[in-house]
């Protein structure tokens, strides 16, 4: 139980980078970008191919991010310069990327089991004394099967927090403010001399850069890159964003990005818990994810409507009471 939870948090922290990317487009730019399903795999494929060809894993991971940035740039160009509807632009890029990803991989699945990934290298420089002391603490709580290493969790937590802080900073700069205004009031920011086309392209590119970076890391964590690993990724990203916002709030930018990271981790935990039921299979997860997103999207409206209804009934009762008393 503890080991599977540990694994969920570990991968959740890495998926959080993808969720931050989805937050940038979906919430900040108000641009529902479906490129994500393709660019996540592009990141995984580029990283895997580079590592197999002897590129140092850290460079391979950065290349993954750059590949995603380029894919996002194309989606942004399609939407702004080509005037293609945002959803359609994303779908077109997602479809095109499927073929491109297959070309990069050369086959449907590339295994990294024989290669040294960024996490293997991390493990070799990581002192076992930290693991030992942390696992010793776990022993106190009666957990006798400790995780093999804490390196991935702790280092990825640091990386994700740094990405979050850079994102927070970026969204408060003059350029970042203008990007946020595009999602809020496009007409206004254009009348304030902002080049909305270029800023939208930049936003979508950065978003997909993060998504592909996450894809490259997930491929190294799982030990493979598969052409189908991105299916439903946008929904997982949305689920993370929505769960996080509901639980942690969105009062400020730094709060919202923290919420997104929390949402991504909690989503992984939910998935892990759900899979403990015998009647559920791994393949059911997409359905469960979609249902989570649907509930999260619809329930606030239903609650709101019910509250309104209750309020009106009470007012009506009060009015009838008044009339009776007067009568």
């Amino acid at each position: 139980m503890f080991i599977s939870m540990f694994g969920a948090v570990e991968s959740g922290i890495i998926y959080a980078i993808m969720a931050l990317g989805v937050y940038l487009t979906f919430r900040v730019l108000d641009f529902p970008d479906l490129t994500v399903d393709g660019s996540f795999v592009t990141g995984a494929a580029v990283a895997a191919l580079a590592i197999i060809n002897g590129v140092p894993p850290i460079i391979a991971t950065i290349l993954a991010g750059i590949a995603g940035f380029l894919a996002g740039t194309l989606t942004g160009l399609l939407h702004t310069k080509g005037k293609v509807n945002a959803l359609l632009a994303g779908i077109l890029m997602m479809t095109a990327l499927y073929s491109i990803n297959l070309r990069i991989l050369g086959q449907p699945t590339l295994s990294l089991h024989m290669e040294s990934t960024i996490f293997d290298q991390l493990g070799s420089v990581w002192g076992t004394s930290i693991d030992n002391s942390l696992n010793g603490m776990l022993g106190i709580f009666g957990i006798d099967r400790p995780p093999s290493t804490w390196a991935i969790l702790i280092v990825m937590l640091l990386v994700t927090v740094v990405i979050k802080l850079v994102t927070d900073y970026f969204l408060k700069t003059e350029v970042g403010l203008a990007i946020r205004a595009i999602g809020d009031n496009k007409r206004m920011i254009r009348s304030l001399s902002a080049n909305t086309d270029n800023l939208t392209i930049l936003g979508v590119a950065l978003s997909n850069g993060l998504v592909a970076l996450s894809g490259g890391l997930i491929a190294q964590l799982g030990g493979f890159a598969d052409v189908g690993m991105g299916i439903g990724m946008i929904v997982i990203g949305l689920a993370s964003v929505i769960i996080g916002e509901a639980l942690f709030g969105t009062k400020t930018i730094s709060r919202a990005t923290l919420a997104v990271i929390g949402g991504a981790v909690i989503y992984r935990i939910i998935v892990t818990l759900a899979l403990r039921f015998d009647f559920l299979e791994t393949g059911d997860m997409k359905l469960i994810t979609a249902i989570i997103v649907i509930i999260a999207l619809i329930s606030p409206k239903i609650l709101q409507a019910q509250r309104e209804k209750k309020r009106r009934i009470e007012k009506r009762r009060a009015l009838e009471q008044d009339i009776k008393e007067v009568g």
């Binding site: 700069t173 003059e174 350029v175 403010l177 203008a178 304030l192 001399s193």
Partner: peptide, 9 residues
């Protein structure tokens, strides 16, 4: 920032 170049500050 209307009549200036927007920067990363």
């Amino acid at each position: 920032s209307r009549n200036k170049k927007r920067k990363l500050t």
